[in-house]
Design a protein around this nucleic acid. Structure first.
Lengths: 340, 340
DNA sequence: GACTGGCACTCATTACACTTGAGTGCCAGC
DNA sequence: GCTGGCACTCAAGTGTAATGAGTGCCAGTC
């Protein structure tokens, strides 16, 4: 019972029209707008089959057809071509990202750009610490018993923690600590540091051991274990553009989900290779996000992935265009990171 | 022409009932719920006067009365007492803020706490650089021609910039630069640094001058002049709780305004002393926020103000309770900052 | 066998008339 | 100056009818 070419064409037409108008599409309108050279009745027969197969459905008996999640899935997988970006869009991306002064700035510009181009909600994960390497670890004495630990990683992220030392540590000792730590950790991936930090405890001179113990606890607990991931979000106002119907009448659950960093990380942070994922409606593991679709991809300098970014919109958003934009932005950000 | 005590009592009753029910309140219901010892007819006469004076209005001829912005203003200024927080709330605040590991964490916890307690949208400004002093400036060589400048200020904020040097600078020279800069700038308020940075240019040894020039440009341009203010936001989902009517039917403009950092800064960043400001409806300079009220206050260690925080909700939110919460949270955050 | 035109049928949507009831303004009386 | 009474207003709810987009099915045609 395969779907022949015309039935696929009908499905594609339905998806495209529905995405454009947000209204159930009927057989007559279909043959008019797309030049399928058949009559409405024929299309109706095809639609009956498509409905039986679960690709489209009727909101109510005497209404037009609407694609189901399964229909979108088929559309995205087999019926759509990723739309190339217009030169204007490419230029917009470059212009927007250029002139970012630090990582925060890069991330914020990226997320706003993405929201603006796709006209949806955009999410950008900061380069993951778990996927980064230590570049330098700085110890800044605040008082004799307080140290500010500043960790700089290769992606440009800078994390700091205030550490309360068990006993005063003279400035020279801080210098020693700094040197020892950097010799051991610089260039190491963050995930590989725990044994190294352990080793440091033994190597360091006995008088520094108490301070080193405190330091290592902080390093391991707050930086490595907590996997302190961060996110930026933009474009929530775009949710209101989509008819409220798209989200069964309430933005509430969506907005709530967007405030949960854990949820967002699950959505866009789980990127392995630089493939683009499209989650449609019910395919979302998160209940609150049924009714929304998520396009996400990884980014990073070169072929390494250091974080994820993506876009969330109504199930019926323009996936081909969105996918293209998300990929393009990810590539530009990756290039930007590669430069530093 | 003055409003006598009973008229004020009527106004207070109207505001309280309307805040509680979100529905126009009529004369009969009023005398029942509040024990005004007069008849509905009397109340109606009073209401006629209040309406004439612009404190209340009727949505339509045969409906109850609703407070106007002016009515709220009078209520907030003269008729309401700030509700003391419950011990449970105080404990919630303490528990929530305790255990913050760094400034980012403090700000994020604060904003979420505030959103949760008031059930509105919360905004917290990071301690303003303009109001901070330099604690330490660290230069971390990334390569021979690249420096990461890390500035730590007294409020715990840490800002970093990558600087491209005009020519390679050996490690020893970086040490010299670091020392010179810190000697000059440490402890200085950020707003007072420009002349000092200028002076540094002359003092530094000639061989370091090109590097120092680049450095000073970055320092002045990106840190001092841009007044790089940052914000955290939470609780946007609460906007959906308020009947849509509260925002003339669309969350759109509100969500859009919330995405504009400049607008938010205007709202909560312009704090002089530690007074609490309440902006009601039309009093907002920002057009998109008519229909919303904003309660904001400053916070900081001791009596110094380093930043602002506040809450945005529908005009008819529970102002007395909100004011109390906003103040309490501000005080706790201030105490927390004072400890470091 | 696949497509088409025709036709009866379904049902959301809209319009309209009607009812209901909360709330008002006003006035005469206490 | 307060109160009870009364006529009036009008939003919101309810029932009914008209509208029309869209369907399913069937008999006829290529």
């Amino acid at each position: 019972m395969g779907l022949d070419d015309r039935k696929l064409a009908v499905l594609r037409a339905i998806v495209e029209d529905y995405v454009a108008t947000q209204e159930p599409v009927g057989s007559k309108a279909l043959v008019e707008r797309h030049h399928l050279n058949v009559s409405p009745a024929t299309v109706r027969n095809d639609m009956a089959v498509l409905e039986e197969e679960g690709y489209i459905r009727q909101p109510h008996t005497s209404a037009g057809r609407v694609p189901t999640d399964r229909g979108y899935r088929l559309f995205v997988d087999r019926l759509s071509r990723v739309k190339p970006l217009s030169p204007a869009e490419r230029r917009a991306i470059e212009r927007f990202l250029l002139g970012a002064v630090d990582l925060d700035d890069v991330v914020h510009r990226t997320v706003r750009l993405l929201a603006q181009l796709t006209r949806q909600v955009a999410v950008v994960q900061y380069p993951s610490l778990a996927r980064s390497s230590v570049r330098h670890l700085e110890l800044v004495p605040i008082s004799t018993t307080r140290l500010m630990v500043v960790m700089i990683v290769d992606t440009g992220r800078v994390e700091q923690r205030l550490v309360e030392l068990p006993s005063p540590v003279p400035a020279d000792d801080v210098t020693d600590l700094r040197r020892s730590i950097n010799e051991k950790l610089a260039g190491q991936r963050l995930t590989e540091t725990p044994p190294l930090v352990q080793a440091l405890l033994d190597e360091v001179s006995p008088s520094l051991r108490p301070a080193m113990t405190t330091l290592s606890t902080v390093l391991l607990e707050t930086l490595v274990e907590r996997k302190d991931e961060r996110l930026a979000l933009a474009g929530t106002a775009n949710l209101t553009r989509a008819g409220l119907l798209d989200f069964h009448g309430s933005l509430r659950p969506i907005l709530e989900a967007l405030e949960e960093e854990v949820i967002l990380l699950k959505l866009i942070g789980e990127v392995e290779a630089s493939t683009t994922r499209v989650r449609i409606g019910d395919e979302n593991e998160i209940e609150d996000l049924r009714g929304a679709s998520v396009v996400s991809t990884g980014y990073g300098p070169g072929s390494v992935i250091v974080g994820g970014l993506g876009v969330l919109g109504p199930t019926r958003m323009d996936d081909p265009g969105t996918i293209a934009t998300v990929r393009a932005v990810a590539r530009y950000v990756g290039d930007l990171l590669a430069q530093n």
